[in-house]
Design a protein around this nucleic acid. Structure first.
Lengths: 357, 357
DNA sequence: CTGAAAGCGCTTACAG
DNA sequence: CTGAAAGCGCTTACAG
């Protein structure tokens, strides 16, 4: 590929010169627009192909500044101490925003309460009324989420799902983990680190477990590993709709008292720090503990050796990439990939320092 | 931060208008160039500050096209089946190249033979004669590497080291793993997966171990973990300057015959697939095997369950980021960060599918 | 169906 | 010390 040794790559001007037409006409051919005679079109296309013309993205973008504003809607859970996880996607979105703001992209944020489906519904309605040119959201509640995707489809509005997809629904674009595999990986780690006569606890700590698809899929993946490998560790379950420490620790205490020989606890979401806190207090350093997400509390406990593994799927990048996907689609008509599955990262006490979301 | 609700952010033109000067003068102040009276400088700066002016990077870059070509030199090992690892940094460099080629950046490649220091020396001389505006290289051989950095320093040429740094040398910029921690992490994984009465083998398979700083540091980190944790697993060593399968397998066979109760083998570089092949042939599925790098062979063995963990430090990103660092420094005078330490990724059979270099 | 011209926001000679 | 003008490579009305 050394042939581009020549000065700069040819641009529209050069093409126009060679084809003996104006650059406007070249532009029309490049963008496949109406109103060019077959003859000149063919001539220009031939030159484009021969030159291997690549548009200068910079110039394209700069010229774009003439065009109007692009409005994007983002629908995410409110960020509270309890939902710190969502800070990361939000950061990624903000990062993308700052990069493309200068090309006239505006992002409008809509927030819902993870524990209240009606707030999600309300925001969906608001977004529909707002008529954005693109939507990024996480379908925490499948029914209203489908409403939004269906509406968007009809209205021709591109959308991107992050973090979770909608069960049994074929969305336009999903950017996030493959949750089943994520659980499967967790099981592998437990398997490697636990003797085979030990009991293993699957801890589900969330107010709305039954509707949380990601949590369910992780559990399925986790169980599937043990089944596929014909492992005989008893798999226990701990369910807690109470997400406060007091409630969780009570349940844990009871379970641990009643079951001997627990080797590992797998927490299916970011609430793993609650379990860590309990195990630390109870002095149970013998139990392998793993869970999800690079939150402050979790990292603290990882550092203190109370958590052994954190699994993390680059939440920040999900937000960043989601916005960029919409932007590139709207501005350059880039095709939107159906799925972009994130890496499933394993974080331990010995590599967390170098991790980047 | 909602105040930017107004149309577009102000640019040089607006600043010039407000200050009642020409945009050329504004430009001079922005870039801190000579030849502006204190008075107008102060006035303009005040307006810049007040407006929170941020240059439009796109326009900046586009305008750059006026300037001449930038020549960068890259010095890497030749890529052969045996050194497949280097394909990844190379890919990252190519990716960066394609992104910045249109701004007049040319990359010139220089290759050396990892097993022959004199080829490295020769290329260093060539590069010095070539007088590039920036250099990216990996200091496989410390002495000639220092020669190159010292020359660059004198000549004011920025350079970036990737993959390994130079022992005891304070380089201008290093992008790569913290090898000591990388070995430390490997030890943690072994510790988690191996009973404490098991013997552990550290396998060094390389023609030039003694000069390979990264390999040495990984081993140090590995040993340090066992020491810090006061673990009593005997640590054995396998040294092989022969990097062919025949030679490696002979040594392995001997070691395994002579030592009972081996629980894990840690290979300090990407040659782990050779050990995997041997263990597979010998039917030793009981030994935990881990090593480095996401190469074709390694991934194959990971998939086949012959390798348990691969540690990987985003070699592609190292190359990409290295070139971008030089570019941004040369073009926008961005300050070069002294160190950019890569994440230390853990890859297993259950997450390799989603990994991105 | 086609073209001339202005503009995106910045940088760079060049002239004074 | 300062400014007017041309240019980077593309896009977009507008005129014909």
């Amino acid at each position: 590929m050394k042939k581009n040794n020549a000065k700069a790559a040819a641009g529209v001007k050069e093409i126009a010169r060679l084809a003996q037409v104006s650059i406007a006409t070249v532009d029309r051919v490049i963008h496949n627009r109406e109103g060019v005679s077959e003859k000149t079109k063919t001539k220009i296309q031939a030159i484009i192909d021969k030159l291997g013309y690549q548009p200068n993205v910079l110039a394209q973008r700069l010229a774009l500044a003439t065009r109007g504003t692009i409005n994007l809607a983002v629908l995410l859970p409110v960020i509270s101490p309890e939902t710190e996880f969502w800070q990361a996607p939000r950061d990624g979105i903000t990062k993308a925003e700052s990069e493309i703001k200068q090309y006239g992209v505006n992002i409008h944020y809509f927030y819902f309460d993870q524990n209240d489906e009606s707030t999600f519904e309300k925001q969906v309605k608001k977004i529909i009324r707002f008529k954005p040119q693109g939507i990024l959201f996480t379908p925490t509640f499948p029914d209203p989420a489908v409403q939004l995707t269906e509406h968007s489809k009809k209205a021709g509005i591109p959308y991107v799902l992050i973090n979770t997809d909608i069960p049994g629904y074929d969305a336009m674009c999903y950017i996030g983990p493959e949750s089943f595999h994520s659980g499967y990986l967790a099981a592998q780690l437990v398997h490697y680190c636990t003797a085979r006569d030990k009991k293993i606890v699957i801890a589900k700590i969330a107010r709305e477990i039954s509707t949380n698809y990601a949590i369910l899929r992780k559990e399925e993946g986790f169980r599937a590993y043990f089944k596929d490998r014909k492992l005989e560790n008893p798999l226990l379950t701990l369910d807690s709709k109470d997400t406060e420490y007091a409630g969780v620790s009570r349940k844990l205490a009871k379970l641990i008292k009643q079951e001997q020989n627990i080797g590992a606890i797998f927490v299916t979401n970011s609430r793993v720090s609650l379990v860590a806190r309990y195990l630390e207090a109870a002095g149970r350093t013998d139990i392998i503990l793993l869970g999800y997400d690079f939150t402050t509390d979790n990292v603290q406990h990882l550092k203190a050796d109370n958590i052994d593994f954190l699994i993390c799927e680059k939440p920040q990048e999900q937000g960043y990439r989601g916005i960029m996907t919409l932007f590139q689609h709207l501005v350059y008509s880039n095709v939107i990939e159906k799925n972009y599955l994130m890496p499933i990262d394993i974080i331990t006490r010995e590599n967390y320092l170098f991790y980047r979301n």
